[in-house]
Design a protein around this nucleic acid. Structure first.
Lengths: 236, 236
DNA sequence: ACCTTCGTTATGTACTACATAACAACAAAA
DNA sequence: TTTTGTTGTTATGTAGTACATAACGAAGGT
């Protein structure tokens, strides 16, 4: 008899799909929650009911539920059963952001993301800037000159404060999650890479109230990083 | 006898820590992987060895491993055991990004994040822009005028192309993941909110090669959105 | 009304059992 | 000798049972 075809109709090798029951149940449960329009606080069926309904063992259901629980989609209390919760969208992000397991290409992508964020920041920053904020930034900038050797720590403090001023908590948390990546990429570089504009210079521009001038200052401040990525990443 | 204190020393309500064994094992495993400096491809001990080493049942270990597997931190094959893999950092993000379970404040944060990204985009865009890119953008902009009713779809196509041009795959994927949020926030608004600068106008500015002019054009294009958030989110 | 007690219930954990896929090692055939 | 087929072993995948534990609710006593 003829050999069974292992090729897809297109001639490509089909990727072996090793879907386990837990994977399927996880997807089914997520779809179930979405289509039933569950809202935070609503109660889910019991594990046994789900297991029977899906025709799998309670073990499998628990593995799937364990995942949803980790993502913060559900919460479980003994006896009370399970209820839908509002997931912390950055909580799961945090879990996979260990620099040791991210390939270098992705890390460079993330570093570029940082540059984009900081160049776009002024448009959120200026409408929400107060005198108090400026004072805080000045303080941080002054400390920069004092403790010259701990530049990275100061860098983090200053730029972190900028995100904080936007009042956008998600943005601020996002930035602090990405910090390890930023720091790691910086260590990959050879020279100290100090821009022409210092933090003090940025604060001065901030005080003038000229948004575009500040943005140009930020560009100069980040110039060493920008210079390093002018090419469209040709080789891989 | 005096009532047991349910307050922490600081006077704040202590969060009840309902850590389950699976939570602990998950943390331990992640720490184990990090401290042992596991690299992608390295093999982990078997489930039984982990269970015995941690002093818990295989069931608990499996729940924890199931989570890591979902995050893409490990992969398991029968008999071969488990190996470390490079997680897709946005894969887990995708799972919790269902608009139905995100509170409105976070969605506004994300929408602001979008505005920041688009305003910072030019600094990645211009160094990597080619003639072909401009042609593609022109085509999309032309279709805008043809199918005037499907503005949202066209909006997605045009701005998505801008991200694509940066060559930053992580950034592009990130944006497409956030699209449902953008779309949802837009539906919350009353008026059609059309900026003064159209997509065609943006392409024209792009062709001039003047980065700052393009950025100002983008600001005008997004003006209706910016106008809506000038206040530092006072209430709540 | 308040407190206590106790039964019920659903999750949390442990253990056993077996199916299944994948590898390894050896045996048979060309 | 290289290739192919067989078989046994091993670790994961799934099912099922059992029991602990916490939380709720109802009943009963003060």
């Amino acid at each position: 008899m003829p050999a069974m075809s292992i090729m897809s109709p297109s001639g490509e090798l089909e990727p072996i799909l090793n879907k386990t029951m837990a994977d399927i149940v996880e997807a089914r449960l997520r779809e179930y929650i979405r289509t039933k329009n569950y809202k935070p606080g609503d109660a889910l069926p019991t594990e046994m009911e789900l297991a029977e309904g899906l025709g799998v063992s309670r073990n499998v259901v628990r593995e799937a539920l364990s995942r949803l629980r980790m993502l913060g989609i559900i919460e479980t209390r003994k006896k009370r059963g399970m209820v839908i919760t509002q997931p912390d969208i950055l909580g799961s992000f945090e879990k996979v952001l260990d620099p040791i397991m991210i390939d270098e290409a992705t890390m460079r992508d993330i570093f570029e993301l940082r540059l984009v964020l900081e160049m776009g920041l002024p448009d959120l920053l200026f409408p929400r800037l107060t005198e108090a904020h400026v004072t805080e930034l000045e303080k941080i900038a002054r400390e920069e000159q004092a403790t010259d050797n701990f530049r990275i720590q100061n860098e983090i403090a200053f730029h972190g404060k900028l995100y904080e001023i936007t009042g956008n908590n998600t943005l601020k948390r996002f930035q602090s999650l990405l910090l390890p990546i930023f720091a790691y990429v910086i260590t990959l570089e050879e020279k100290p890479t100090r821009g022409k504009i210092s933090h003090s210079g940025l604060v001065e521009l901030l005080k003038t109230g000229n948004k575009e001038a500040f943005r140009q200052g930020m560009l100069e401040h980040l110039r060493p990083h920008f210079d390093r990525l002018e090419h469209p990443t040709p080789g891989e």
